[in-house]
Design a protein around this nucleic acid. Structure first.
Lengths: 214, 214
DNA sequence: TATTAAATGTCAAATAATTAACAAATCAGG
DNA sequence: CCTGATTTGTTAATTATTTGACATTTAATA
């Protein structure tokens, strides 16, 4: 059901958190919740929650609140968790391995069907149910299989060149862990960045910002 | 040098990216850069860059631009990268291990001096130059050593209880990878979250959002 | 069945963030 | 040493986001 209204990015960023809190409530057997109570649990204003949810339609009932299970499912559907995407991961170092093993891609619709690395030591090793293949084989693999998304866990230096190859293969969706700004290279791609270094620096700022005044 | 003016959070979030781009320029031997040229490379407006930098003082020179090296150092200093913090990591699973091995904490001022896990299989194993200790030993360790920050790579279920223990030990700064909202539990702590699940869901949204209209 | 308390959806107001505009300053070149 | 082209710092305008307010609806209770 494509909404023609463009949803503001701050709203989108809050959705996974709503989804998580609603999932917790669901697990605890809570059937219904008001925006006020949810706001207290989440540290938001009730007004913001109502405003956010109304971007997508009226899921609540006046005088009653929101039905936890149906709201949970609605948000899951808004996030597009029901879809299914063939996904490859490039870079089987510590981070790549952790991402492959740690994340439950399947529950979010991402089927990890290939892992690649250019280190001869890693090629042939097993991660989950997959064998790490040589990065040189990406072209063959992506021609034989329809690939919807790529996870990049390669060093900064390898990223631009690799991005060119993936782009040429028609891949337009990226979960980018590499310390490189993909979105500057192509303008018709979807990128979600996980820049751990940036995150650590922000922690650093908050810490040094906090200490003087306390 | 504590600034009394509170810096808006969107500005802070952009700082690491400025730092990265300036570092690249520095490596490439670029001596000076104008806000206009930097804006083109980064995909921002020149106005925003000038506005951002002016929160911290005038680092540029009219008619000339910004000296790359000194601006790089200034931003590093604003971020507090010069500080030094004793840090422990809890949870030596795939993610914890990857974070420990992959990140160059030291260059950001974080000295990783302890790793803990409650899985007997992991206790005693080596990560970097450290031996994984039993989580039960955290109290002893944190009494013997002044700990400034903790990295949480434990499952959601273990997080609340662990957070209580760390808080009781006086730890107030957290790099949180666990799928749990620490900041709701205590209000006088500094938390920087890395919620990989949330990030993946946002990718999912962007992908499903993109496809219908193209 | 009527009444009251509670809660949403929505519009308006307030706040925050970004962009545009421009005066003042600097550099480079003749 | 003057002139013109740049470029910053800064203020104002615009745009975006969040919060507040309230009419309307519902559930629960007597």
């Amino acid at each position: 059901m494509p909404k023609n209204k463009i949803i503001a990015s701050p709203v989108i960023k809050r959705l996974p958190r709503y989804y998580r809190f609603l999932g917790d409530l669901l697990e605890n057997g809570v059937k219904r919740i008001s925006s006020r109570e949810l706001s207290e649990r989440m540290g938001l204003t009730a007004s913001q929650i109502r405003q956010d949810l109304n971007c997508f339609g009226g899921f609540g009932q006046q005088g009653y609140g929101y039905a936890v299970e149906s709201l949970y499912n609605e948000i899951g559907s808004i996030l597009g968790l029901g879809n299914s995407y063939n996904t490859i991961l490039i870079g089987a170092g510590n981070l790549g391995k952790a991402v492959a093993v740690h994340m439950s891609f399947e529950t979010r619709g991402f089927n990890l069907i290939g892992i690649f690395d250019n280190d001869p030591q890693k090629i042939g090793s097993s991660i989950r149910d997959l064998t790490v293949a040589d990065t040189d084989k990406i072209e063959d693999f992506c021609t034989a299989n329809k690939i919807d998304a790529a996870i990049l866990c390669v060093p900064k230096t390898a990223a631009p060149q690799l991005a060119d190859r993936l782009y040429a293969l028609g891949i337009r969706n990226y979960w980018n862990f590499s310390h490189y700004d993909l979105s500057m290279r192509f303008d018709d791609i979807v990128v979600e960045n996980v820049h751990l270094n940036d995150s650590l620096m922000i922690l650093c700022y908050k810490m040094s910002d906090k200490s003087p005044e306390e």
